[in-house]
Amino acid sequence: MTVATEPAVTPERRRAPRGSARQSIVAAATELFARRGYEATSVQEIVAAAEVTKGALYHWFGSKSELLTSIYRELLAEQTRRLAEIAAGDGPVGERLRAAALDVVEHTAEHLAELTVWARSAHLLDDEHAEATRRERRRYHDLFRDLVHEAQLAGVVRADVSATVVTHTFLSALGNIHTWFHPDGPLTFTEVGHQLVALFVDGVRAPAESAPAGGPARG
């Protein structure tokens, strides 16, 4: 399986505007991590591609691992904020759950390179930055699980499967698309994601009868 990558950063690339060193570092690191892999990419290669000094990189990031986790944590924070807004919305819970599933698919499609880099490299990290990222990821999972649980209590999502199982099944399926998706295939990543949402929504829909007395467990 291959994932589309950005064009290689070349020495001829125009120098980044003043004040955008951090953005240049993140863009160069994302491209190099995607093309060469996290372990095979050196700090020197990143600063050369970004056309900055090592001092500039270490001004923003304490290490290569912090750079990698920072790329993901910023996107995760955005995902979490968007999910919280959807979950707290006024619409019917079934519509909010579907909107949340579509939102994470579309956000993933918008940032496919960065999120694929993280999915491929996260297992290589074992430091305080990685642990902080795992805690933040659990917060996203908990918010999504709570929305599923609310939908179960409302009788619109099946209650014979725990909200935790439902949540992990959907988010894990989305997170693993990169292992088999091919950009030259008949469907775009967004189209694949929307089909996944359709399967998710249909698969968790409650039967005509209401949820069992006492309500479902979150798991």
Rank of each mutant, 00 (worst) to 15 (best):
V26R: 06
Q195H: 14
F170N: 07
H123Y: 04
F33I: 03
F181Q: 06
L199G: 15
A100L: 03
R73L: 11
Y72Q: 08
L196E: 09
G19A: 08
A40G: 07
R137L: 14
L115I: 09
L196H: 08
V105M: 00
Y38T: 00
V197W: 04
A77L: 13
A213Y: 07
A113R: 08
W60G: 09
D160Y: 05
A84Q: 14
H129M: 10
E114F: 07
A151M: 04
G219H: 03
V117Y: 01
R14F: 09
H141Q: 15
D103Y: 02
V105L: 02
L174M: 06
G37F: 02
A84W: 00
V197M: 09
E136H: 13
V201Y: 00
F181R: 10
L187D: 12
G155E: 00
A154K: 03
F200E: 10
R82S: 14
D103A: 14
A173R: 11
T69G: 08
A122F: 04
G175K: 08
L124F: 07
E131W: 13
R18E: 07
P212V: 04
L76C: 01
V9K: 12
V9Q: 05
A109P: 00
R98N: 05
P216G: 00
T80M: 06
E6G: 01
Y140Q: 12
F181Y: 15
T167K: 08
E85A: 15
H178T: 03
L75W: 08
E78P: 01
G19D: 02
S63H: 10
F189I: 01
L115A: 03
P7W: 01
E128S: 15
Y38D: 02
R137H: 14
T2Y: 10
R134H: 09
D126M: 11
V26N: 01
S172A: 15
S172L: 14
